[in-house]
Design a protein around this nucleic acid. Sequence first.
RNA 1: GCCCCCAUCGACUAGCGGCCCAGGUCACGGCCCUUUCAAGGCCGUAGCGCGGGUUCGAAUCCCGCUGGGGGCACCA
Length: 421
Amino acid sequence: MPPIVRFAPSPTGLLHIGGVHTALFNWLYARHEAGEFRLRIENTDTSREVAEATEQIQESLRWLGLDWDGPTTFQLDRMQRCKEEARRLVDEGKAYEDVGAIRIRMPDEGSTGWDDLIRGRIEYPNEKLEDLVAVRADGRPTYNFASPVEDWLDGITHVIRGEDHISNTPKQIRILQALGASLPRYGHLANILGPDGRKLSKRHGAVSAEEFRKQGYYAPALLNYLALLGWSYDDRRELFTREELVELFTLERVGASPAVFDYQKLTHLNGVYLRSLSPAEYAGVLAGYLREQGYEWNEELVRRAAPLVQEKIATLGEFPSFAGFLFEPVEPARELLDGSAPLLSDAREALGGVDPFEAGQIEATLRGLAERLGLKPRQAFQPIRAAVTGSNVSPGLFESIELLGREETLARLARAAAAAA
RNA sequence: GCCCCCAUCGACUAGCGGCCCAGGUCACGGCCCUUUCAAGGCCGUAGCGCGGGUUCGAAUCCCGCUGGGGGCACCA
């Protein structure tokens, strides 16, 4: 029987990367086993609900390609059913009323245990289990009651979630048993930590899927990186397409120890992905990203600039600062130009006669100029680079000049020569 | 305080008793290439938390300790 799993975030804000990780592992498991992956919004606590959150969560999942089966469901929609079930437990003597709330009786001897999908046997002493509130005095079911009831109603077969739910599991098992429901299997994933060993949070850097997207991370790379946090295929392979992940993923190879999120490794992997794209694909991805982030730059020029940066930037977000000089005026720092007024004037003059105005000719001309002036390539090109791109770090100089065009290049050289004088 | 979980290079991990004086990747250091920055190539530094067992043999199994994390709500 194919498994049915679910991802059940609460709509309290943007989708946290830890949530993405949990969603990914559920999704991979479902797809690998040809089962179903459901999305359920746990909005029982209306006071903490953020209006936009549900749509943002779904948008993030769509961006990452984590498609879910069936409609998105809402915990709140099942309040009535939850109350009826709680009522039933009272009638059966398995629960009782307490100051207006309904509490479920928990055993106080022995232990409750389960064979965790990724941790093996876990036993929890029953004396630590309190009679938990299933329905509040105001009539709303609690999370710990609604969640297992919904798992039951939805026929969830495998509950794969974060390790912070380990201590909830025995309670939920007891509830399900009281209800007469069959139990799902449980698997608890390790948390994702920040570099300081604490829970990954805002002060460590980007934490929501939306932020990673904004910074120019490529969804397939982010997914690949996240898969490597707690899962591995063997002792050397680290690059996997979505399809390969689906094919190779097994819970058997998921580890139980917490992992520190390494932004540098993610960035490196992102670069590997971006560089592996064909020039046309890359140009499309880059143009799409800039459009989405609100840049209104000439798309034709963006596409022509794409090959100049593909090898050089690891995230799409670096493009504006790295190649923005093609679209906006530059203001080179004085010290980058110091003492190079004659050189810049000579360069301007030499480039004025280049025809056709393309990289090969431009390079030959500037190298010839450097040689005439007795300058090493670096000595000659850095000031020119600064004058034209506004920085001492840029895409290839000759290609950049070609894209900028003769008129703008000469204007920038003239302006910089004046500033350097 | 009590309960639960976890423990291999700085980081992610491979290792499920001999193939390991521990392998891969990121980061870091050096060299090469080079118009900057990257990318790439080559080389290198670096690890089984500690103590007891079990075994002919332990990174691998067991126990304890230590350390880290999570949980103990009419929050999710």
